[in-house]
Simulated assay, not measured.
Amino acid sequence: MSDWRVELRRGLDTAVHDDRVLPVTRWVARIIVPFLAAAFLVLYGFPTRTTELFAWTIRPEMTPIIMGAGYGAGVFFFYRVSTADEWHTVAPVFLGITTFTWFMAIATVLHWENFNHTHATFALWVFLYAVTPVLVPAVWALNRRTDTGELGADDVRLPRTVRVLGGGLGLVVTVSAIVLFVAPDLMIGVWPWTVSPLTARILAGWFALFGVVNGAVVLDERWSAARILVQSELLGFSLVLVGVVRVWDNFDTSNVLTWGVVGGMILYLGATLALYLGMERR
């Protein structure tokens, strides 16, 4: 029997608390990376060409840029999953990704008519969001049994204030994302750039991912459990802010929410970078 099948059987039959990343988890990460990389290249690299290159037409460019930035951060994250030695260092993000895939799957069903059914990327989109809402939580449930939950000799604790603030922010963003997903018209009327019911729900899915992974810091005090999450967020928000500069004409500058959204992202990126540098020096 091949090594990965042996490891999978061990994971199913026993709870071995050695904090390892199971081979099946690594393989799932390796399989997902090319899909995310392709989405990143199309959406972030060519946001004006979604009609010919993507599963549906997205206008204006800021929405595909946000999606592309998220997928770019996802490439980094799943690469780290495929190379990580300890499960707990990547575990919290799986909860957010699970929530995100559910949002994407439901949005696809609700807005089926908006997709380009003849495009190859539509088939890839449907495949990805038919499989991952089950696959990602299954991998998390299987691999979580290996986590010792213990603070390592070289690890440090996240400050309680950071965990409380992160958890509070995560809760607020997650609840807001659910509300916007259920009632996208609330977003359409006030958002800084034009969104449709479909793109409003897609963006709500990205907000939910952000909210859940931030809320997950309440569950684990180990800095090592947050490090890769924070690195992924730094990359994702940096890409988004570069995208803001690229397509600034998409924004309604007379809308106060424009300055709140952009300013909030800048502040969050700065605070997250300060946290990362501070924790790494400990």
Rank of each mutant, 00 (worst) to 15 (best):
V6Q: 13
R20L: 01
L22T: 01
T25F: 06
A37H: 03
L43I: 00
L43W: 07
T48G: 10
R49I: 03
E52W: 11
W56M: 07
R59G: 06
R59N: 14
D85F: 03
T89F: 07
V90D: 08
F94Y: 04
L95R: 14
L95Y: 12
F103C: 03
M104F: 11
I106W: 06
H111G: 09
H119Y: 02
F122D: 01
W125I: 03
F127P: 04
A130L: 13
V131L: 15
V131A: 15
V136W: 12
P137F: 02
L142H: 05
N143H: 06
N143K: 00
T146V: 09
L151C: 02
D154L: 04
D155H: 07
D155W: 03
L158N: 09
P159G: 02
R160W: 04
G167W: 05
G167H: 11
G168P: 06
G168Y: 02
L169F: 10
V179H: 14
V182C: 05
W206N: 11
F207V: 06
A208V: 07
A216N: 13
V218M: 13
W223A: 08
S224Y: 11
V230W: 00
V230H: 00
L239A: 08
L239S: 12
V240A: 04
V240G: 00
V240C: 01
G243N: 03
T253R: 15
S254W: 12
G263M: 07
I266M: 07
Y268D: 15
L273W: 15
L273F: 15
Y276N: 13
Y276L: 10
L277A: 15
M279T: 08
